[in-house]
Simulated assay, not measured.
Amino acid sequence: MIATLPEGECAILTPDQTRVIGASPYAWRWLGRYAKHPGGALERIPVEIDKPLPPLSHGTATE
């Protein structure tokens, strides 16, 4: 699945949308997950906290 993000950025996700296969250089600004704290507050956790996002490579379909 191709995720079209603001400012012309994009990311390619696995079919179940749980992993990033490839991402444009600044896609990290738009990707993340949320952690819910005991008091109910939400905190955005950047997706690249686990490791850097894989770059889009030649031959990666974007259409």
Results as ranks from 00 to 15, higher is better:
Glu63Ile: 07
Ala3Asp: 01
Gly32Tyr: 03
Ile21Met: 09
Glu43Gln: 02
Tyr34Phe: 13
Glu9Ile: 04
Ala35Tyr: 14
Tyr34Trp: 12
Pro38Ser: 09
Pro25Lys: 08
Tyr34Ala: 09
Trp30Phe: 15
His58Gly: 15
Glu7Lys: 15
Met1Val: 14
Glu43Ser: 06
Pro52Leu: 07
Pro55Trp: 05
Ala35Ser: 08
Pro25Thr: 02
Arg33Glu: 01
Trp30Met: 13
Thr14Ser: 10
Thr62Gly: 06
His37Tyr: 09
Gly59Pro: 11
Tyr26Phe: 15
Ala27Tyr: 13
Leu42Trp: 04
Ile45Gly: 02
Glu7Tyr: 12
His37Phe: 04
Met1Cys: 12
Arg29Ile: 07
Gly40Thr: 15
Gly59Thr: 04
Met1Thr: 13
Lys51His: 10
Trp28Cys: 12
Pro6His: 01
Leu53Tyr: 03
Ala41Val: 12
Leu56Gln: 02
Arg19Ser: 11
Leu56Asp: 04
Val47Arg: 05
Leu53Lys: 03
Ile12His: 10
Ile49Leu: 14
Leu56Ala: 00
Asp16Cys: 00
Thr62Tyr: 08
Ala41Lys: 07
Arg44Pro: 05
Leu56Glu: 00
Ala27Ser: 14
Ala23Met: 05
Ala61Leu: 12
Ala11Gln: 01
Leu53Cys: 02
Glu9Pro: 08
Ala23Cys: 07
Pro52Gly: 01
Ala27Met: 12
Gly8Gln: 03
Glu9Trp: 03
Lys51Leu: 10
Ile12Gly: 11
Arg33Ala: 00
Trp28Val: 13
Pro46Cys: 09
Trp30Asn: 13
Gly39Trp: 01
Ala23Arg: 03
Asp50Trp: 02
Ala61Gln: 13
Pro46Glu: 06
Gly39Ala: 09
Gly22Asn: 13
Ile12Tyr: 09
Leu56Lys: 04
Arg29Tyr: 09
Met1Lys: 12
Glu63Lys: 09
Tyr34Arg: 11
Ala41Glu: 10
Gly40Pro: 09
Gly22Ile: 15
Ala27Trp: 14
Pro6Val: 04
Ala27Thr: 14
Tyr26Cys: 15
Lys51Ala: 15
Glu7Ile: 12
Leu5Trp: 06
Asp16Glu: 04
Pro46Phe: 02
Thr18Tyr: 00
Lys51Asp: 13
Pro52His: 03
Asp16Met: 04
Arg29Asp: 07
Ala61Ile: 14
Thr18Phe: 04
Lys51Trp: 11
Leu31Trp: 07
Glu63Ser: 10
Glu7Gln: 14
Val20Tyr: 06
Ile45Phe: 04
Leu56Phe: 10
Ala3Thr: 07
Leu5Glu: 00
His58Tyr: 12
Thr62Met: 10
Leu53Arg: 05
Gly32Phe: 10
Leu13Met: 02
Thr60Gly: 09
Ser57Thr: 06
Gly40Asp: 13
Leu13Glu: 05
His58Trp: 11
Gly40Ala: 14
Gly39Pro: 08
Val47Trp: 14
Lys36Asn: 14
Lys51Cys: 10
Thr62Val: 14
Ala3Ser: 03
Pro52Glu: 05
Pro6Leu: 03
Pro55Ile: 00
Glu7Pro: 12
Gly59Asp: 01
Gly39Cys: 08
Pro25Gln: 06
Ile2Gly: 00
Pro46Val: 04
Thr62Asp: 07
Thr18Gly: 06
Leu31Asn: 05
Pro46Thr: 03
Ala61Tyr: 15
Pro6Ser: 06
Gly40Asn: 14
Ile12Arg: 09
Val20Phe: 05
Met1Pro: 13
Lys36Phe: 14
Leu13His: 01
Val47Cys: 08
Glu43Met: 00
Arg29Leu: 11
Gly39Met: 08
Gln17Met: 07
Arg19Asn: 10
Ala11Phe: 05
Val20Ile: 11
